[in-house]
């Protein structure tokens, strides 16, 4: 078991306030629900058919004193789509951020437990975060394009990893490969269902795009790095139905070569695109994890059934 201790005593004060909030929230939900249901371990001990890509064991995350994830264990199978659903604030984004260690950026966060990528512990000493994040890509909850051209946004990752050279020196020495860059940009944008809309203005600033376009650009940017695992935090939250449908197709498509983990607030979306679904409920617990069909048609947990049928959350 390894851990990162980024917690900072000073931030304990911030976190105290958060805890107070959260305790209230939980109490409120227990009083609303008639019976308090115990989460049974077998509900989450789902064994997927494929080989395990990411294995998460006893994951605990604290923000200061706030316990945001409680002992989550789940294995994510390779080349499939795993959906994470649950009410707001239940720790879905937190969970996602543990997989590529973006939580390291949050001062107050401390992570305990193991996360293994292809059997290698992600939280052990000496892990090269750059290597990890190349292999585990992420699309954020709100679009965050760089204030650069669309083309530069897409080719940013490959450039930084030295896969594509565009610098002055590279051009002077003939190592630059503009066609390869152009092909990569086109392919990535096409997969993200954005190519049609922007192919005539690749050199415009990406901040000029609409919110939905920006989100798809961020997806394209992530695909250009060609990661093994793609983490998507509500990729379709800012999209209209047509673009959403495109993204959903894309996700299904991606599952052929990639391991996709997608957070969504839309039950329909989870049901449509995912192979297995994990349900988090308030308090940072993983309540049930199973085949998507099982979760939506015949969940073990009463709370999950209420949640997916829209009774609470």
């Amino acid at each position: 078991m390894s851990q990162t201790e980024n917690a900072d005593a000073e931030d304990a004060t911030d976190a105290t306030a958060v805890t107070a909030n959260r305790t209230d929230g939980r109490r409120a939900s227990t009083t609303a629900g008639e019976t308090v249901e115990e989460t049974r371990p077998e509900w989450t001990s789902y064994e997927a058919s494929g080989e395990t890509k990411v294995a998460v064991e006893d994951l605990d995350v604290h923000y200061g004193d706030d316990h945001a994830l409680k002992g989550v264990s789940m294995d994510i199978p390779e080349e499939s789509v795993t959906a994470l659903i649950g009410p707001s604030g239940c720790g879905k984004s937190t969970y996602l951020r543990c997989l590529n260690r973006m939580n390291d950026r949050i001062r107050a966060a401390s992570v305990d437990g193991t996360v293994e990528l292809d059997g290698e512990d992600v939280y052990q000493d000496g892990v090269d975060l750059v290597e990890l994040r190349k292999r585990v890509g992420m699309v954020f909850q709100s679009p965050n394009p760089f204030p650069k051209s669309i083309r530069e946004n897409v080719s940013y990752g490959p450039r930084k990893h030295g896969d594509i050279e565009t610098g002055l020196l590279a051009r002077l020495t003939g190592r630059a490969e503009p066609e390869r860059e152009a092909r990569l940009v086109e392919r990535s944008l096409e997969r993200a269902a954005l190519w049609e809309e922007v192919n005539d203005r690749l050199d415009d600033n990406a901040l000029g795009l609409s919110g939905g376009q920006q989100q798809r650009l961020c997806i394209a940017r992530c695909l250009a790095v060609d990661p093994e695992v793609i983490l998507m935090d509500e990729p379709a939250s800012a999209l209209d139905p047509i673009a959403t449908a495109k993204i959903e197709d894309l996700i299904e498509d991606l599952a052929q070569d990639y391991t996709v983990v997608v957070v969504t607030h839309s039950m329909q979306q989870a049901a449509r695109v995912s192979d297995q679904t994990a349900v988090f409920l308030t308090g940072g617990e993983l309540v049930e994890y199973d085949d998507t069909e099982k979760i939506f048609e015949n969940p073990e947990s009463q709370r999950v059934e209420d949640y997916v049928s829209g009774k609470f959350g």
Binding site: E78, E79, L117, D118, E120, V122, Q124, G126, V127, D128, E131, L132, R135, E228, D257
Partner: peptide, 13 residues
């Protein structure tokens, strides 16, 4: 594994 170019997360050599 699907990818041939997979690199280890920790270099120990």
């Amino acid at each position: 594994m699907s990818r041939a170019t997979q690199t280890a997360l920790v270099r120990d050599d």
